[in-house]
Computed example of a mutant assay.
Amino acid sequence: MFKLSRRYIVSSLRAYHENPLGIPRVGKGPAPTMPRSQKGLPIRQKIPNVKNIILVSSAKGGVGKSTVSVNTALALNSLGAKVGLLDADIFGPSVPRLLNLQGEPRLSSSGKLIPLSNYGVQSMSMGYLVSPEQAVVWRGLMVMKALQQLLFEVEWSPIDYLVIDMPPGTGDTQLSIGQLLQVNGAVIVSTPQDIALIDAVKGIKMFEKVDIPIIGIVQNMSHYICPNCKHESHIFRSEGARRIADEHNLKTLGSIPLDEEICLQSDAGKPIVISNPDSESVKPYFDIARSILDFTK
């Protein structure tokens, strides 16, 4: 069986780190500035009827990124913005459950998908196109085709912000979104735990490589407050995301507690921003939304 040598793997990784997009270079020194089309890269496009595109990413699963995406979109809507939410996770879509929506989207007169709406927010997800128990078992080409449809074949009513709930990882899907769209900014979500922060840093580096500005970092599951004695416990350690934000000169947008109500209301399809807007746990979502509004002024 053919095996790659360790030297070849190391040299390949080093070459990718120095030139991740594979742009040919001649000689030493910085690469000359060229239009994207001359670099062999696609021209970044706008989505019709969408003013601003915001990516919510974690580069890791299981840190509550989708819950942050949905509640932040609802907070933006509550602050007066017209908002859409795109679930870009082809294999594990969460938005239909979080927004309590189901059913196949209708087609417009132009043959595009019409978003489903609830709580004043338009949304599109692969979860509307396949049944909840059906596994999407596709190779990369099919995934990219589905992603293209979700990005460019949806007929959004005019919106101020399209929040894109990114899938975990830093692979083809994330790179394609970063290279195809004119993105206004990205939000990184992580827990304070070191094992989650490792991937959060990878997400930061990914956005730096594709020239997407980072609005800031959200520290999710930051702490737990006992409902009886009000004692504050840091189950996943403390201030880890703040430390990473400081190390990379980024803003900490909010610290969201580990709250049972957030979980229960999310599972019920009634996000806490809608079900209990006066809760202390809701304030960080509005802090994130206001930071996005300020960033895109």
Score class of each variant (00 low, 15 high):
Arg97Val: 09
Pro96Asp: 00
Ala88Asp: 13
Asn71Met: 02
Ser108Arg: 07
Pro93Gln: 04
Leu79Cys: 05
Gly62Ser: 10
Ser78Leu: 07
Pro105Glu: 07
Val63His: 03
Ala59Cys: 13
Ala73Cys: 07
Lys60Pro: 15
Leu98Tyr: 03
Arg97Leu: 11
Phe91Thr: 13
Gly103Thr: 08
Ser66Asn: 11
Val68Glu: 04
Phe91Tyr: 15
Arg106Leu: 05
Lys60Tyr: 10
Ser108Asn: 09
Ser109Arg: 13
Ser108Asp: 09
Val83Pro: 05
Val63Ala: 02
Val83Asn: 02
Ser109Asp: 15
Lys60Val: 14
Ser69Asp: 03
Leu76Ile: 08
Ser94Ile: 03
Pro105Gly: 11
Pro105Val: 12
Gly84Val: 08
Val83Glu: 01
Ser66Phe: 10
Asn100Asp: 15
Ser69Glu: 03
Asn77Lys: 15
Pro93Cys: 10
Ser78Lys: 15
Leu76Ser: 00
Leu74Gln: 10
Ala59Tyr: 09
Leu99Val: 01
Val70Cys: 05
Ser69Ala: 14
Gly80Asp: 04
Gly92Tyr: 09
Ser94Trp: 02
Gly103Arg: 01
Gly103His: 02
Leu85Cys: 04
Val95Gly: 00
Asn100Arg: 08
Leu79Arg: 14
Ser66Glu: 02
Gly92Pro: 13
Gly64Met: 08
Gly92Trp: 10
Leu101Thr: 03
Asn77His: 14
Val63Arg: 09
Gln102His: 15
Asn77Arg: 15
Ala73Leu: 11
Val83Gln: 07
Asn100Lys: 15
Leu74Pro: 13
Leu99Ala: 03
Gly64Ala: 04
Ala81Glu: 09
Val83Leu: 03
Leu101Asp: 00
Thr72His: 05
Ser69Gln: 05
Gly92Asn: 10
Leu98Thr: 05
Ala73Ile: 13
Leu79Ser: 08
Asn71Ser: 07
Ala75Gln: 06
Gly92Thr: 14
Ala59Met: 11
Glu104Asn: 07
Leu79Thr: 06
Ala59Arg: 11
Gly61Leu: 14
Gly84Trp: 12
Thr67Ala: 09
Leu74Ser: 12
Gly62Ala: 07
Leu98Asn: 01
Ala81Tyr: 09
Ala73Phe: 00
Leu99Lys: 00
Ser78Glu: 07
Ala59Phe: 09
Leu107Ser: 07
Ser109His: 13
Leu79Met: 12
Leu101Ile: 10
Thr72Gln: 02
Ile90Arg: 00
Leu107Thr: 12
Ser94Tyr: 02
Ser94Met: 11
Ile90Pro: 12
Glu104Cys: 00
Gly92Lys: 01
Phe91Ala: 04
Val95Asp: 04
Val83Met: 06
Gln102Ile: 03
Thr67Gly: 10
Arg97Asp: 00
Ile90Thr: 09
Ser78Cys: 00
Arg106Asp: 09
Val70Trp: 06
Thr67Cys: 11
Ala81Lys: 15
